[in-house]
Design a binder for these strands. Sequence first.
DNA 1: TGCCCCTGTATACGATCGTATCGTATACGA
DNA 2: TCGTATACGATACGATCGTATACAGGGGCA
Lengths: 205, 205
Amino acid sequence: MPQNATETAPTTQLNRRQRLILAGRHLFAEKGYSAAGVREIAAEAGVSIGLIRTHFGSKAGLREEIDRQVIAQIEDLCSRASEHLGTEALDLLVEDAVEWVERERDALLYVRAALMEKTPGSQALLRQLLEIMRRFVALNRERGLLQDDVDEEWAATFLVIDFLGPAVLEPFSEEEFGMSMYHREMVKRRSAFMNRVVTRGFMKS
Amino acid sequence: MPQNATETAPTTQLNRRQRLILAGRHLFAEKGYSAAGVREIAAEAGVSIGLIRTHFGSKAGLREEIDRQVIAQIEDLCSRASEHLGTEALDLLVEDAVEWVERERDALLYVRAALMEKTPGSQALLRQLLEIMRRFVALNRERGLLQDDVDEEWAATFLVIDFLGPAVLEPFSEEEFGMSMYHREMVKRRSAFMNRVVTRGFMKS
DNA sequence: TGCCCCTGTATACGATCGTATCGTATACGA
DNA sequence: TCGTATACGATACGATCGTATACAGGGGCA
């Protein structure tokens, strides 16, 4: 039977499994894969160590499952923006990304941490981001929204870097900028700046 | 007496110490701080484990020394570009960065790895990059090379992200782009694209 | 009722971690 | 030439790592 979705989840299988995933995602994101131990993960999830083996086979299996879920979230995140064009689509992407980060901060920090270790999962994650940005650039070119003679492959890479950049800086953001990279005010300024850059640049030639 | 600076260094203290630093930098960069073991580092350096304690007190002490050396290299790297203005300075920075990466590839990958873990060293590293870019932006504003109403803080952050971006993608670059991010051809295309972006953008408004 | 998966916990195991200790070799000043 | 400080390696130690095993409750079905 389905249980209600309260936070203090009881003892059903799905809940414990999902709690392990969330705890693993949190600790992998915070300390890195190697530094996060299975006992620590199990403790944070409030279950015993053996469950990791039961559900995921091993610590690596847990990571693979986390990778799958996070990749699905990214796909989801970009779905709305991918139906639009030009800077409007970028605005939508930023908007959805902010909402996503506020809702699932650990997922973002997990993406960040995953990219630091070259695993099949992280490779898939990056490839997905690249594909999304390539499609975006191609679509804009077709609609005549790209300037002439643009290196499209680098434009897509540029967008990926720009998407990941704030995530990379996020752990240092509080000290360096006084607030999170995903704070509303920060996002607004950054969004304005990036819109300006992609359409006009910021330096005189 | 000073010994000659041949590669196959003998048994003097400085050489072994420096070999440990290089081995640590390499393995920390490749596997991350936690995953790289002291035995592995000592083996790669060709010395015994105890030397890490002798010279650096602990594994963490070794990392701190590596941080210091890498930060000094970054400072050095940016010194030439910081004497110039506009896109010319950016070109110089790219040029010097490429030369540096070819000469000290491990150092770049170490920067990348260091930023993934929030340590005093990585914080200092990021702060240094930010300061360099802030000075660059301010200098260009004073000389009238900035467009009007530019958010200078975000411009500096943008430049940092853009500096770090290729390093973040580097481990995936061979698979995704067929060559290193710091391959001459890659650098040339990227440099051209970025010069265009900062002066004109790439999308129509 | 008896059997059996399934989910789950507790605990044991071998390996490896970073660090500490100790013996020896070497270099240098008196 | 001796004395001492330092450089260095071999090895031991306690902790913790990820994984494997043994066993307990609890529905579903014959």
